[in-house]
């Protein structure tokens, strides 16, 4: 009886560790606006009334030229904003782009040597981990499985699981000039 309880507790603890291990490793890059470089903007983020600015830290930029995988310590931060609405539809600027209303979240992907080993090969995104933060910098308790699943569709492509890999490479090339 005690043995069964102990095994059950160990299993539960292991599950908790696996579930918590990923986002727990990623710190809030609170200085991304001043220390990172904006590399892309995205209208209609995931098809909603939202838009996003994507930033990369120096390590991501320095290792981001071409199609090679990024170096350990690379961080990509995506600031997601609600879009200003006009009668329920997104208001558009003179160029037909959505207009930022309020910052809703900062979603972060970070890469470190050895990370990702806890995940199954089907779910793993190389050495990347993900975490979401609210505008006050508080980490979200939501599972990051959907981050892995979406970015995981890029597995096998020379993009290192980053949707803005092309823009990152362009920004890296500009930095070298």
């Amino acid at each position: 009886m005690l043995g069964r309880l102990a095994r059950a507790a160990t299993g539960l603890l292991a599950l908790t560790c696996v579930a918590a291990a990923g986002p727990e490793k990623v710190d809030n890059p609170a200085d991304y606006l001043t220390k990172f470089t904006k590399i892309a903007t995205r209208d209609a983020h995931l098809g909603g009334n939202a838009l996003a600015d994507v930033y990369a830290n120096d390590i991501a930029l320095r290792s981001g030229a071409g199609e090679s995988d990024l170096a350990s310590g690379a961080i990509i931060a995506m600031a997601v904003f609600s879009a200003k609405l006009n009668a329920g539809e997104p208001a558009l600027d003179a160029e037909g782009r959505m207009i930022k209303d309020q910052l809703r979240a900062v979603n972060v992907m970070e890469k470190r040597t050895g990370w990702g080993a806890e995940y199954s090969e089907a779910l793993r995104n190389g050495e990347w981990e993900y975490a979401g933060f609210n505008p006050q910098g508080v980490k979200s308790a939501n599972p990051t499985t959907s981050c892995f699943e979406c970015h995981g569709t890029l597995k096998g492509l020379p993009m290192d699981f980053i949707y803005t890999r092309g823009e990152l490479a362009e920004a890296a090339a500009r930095m070298k000039k």
Partner: peptide, 9 residues
Amino acid sequence: YECFVHIHS
């Protein structure tokens, strides 16, 4: 129509 996940890249 479009896939919202894969339109940009």
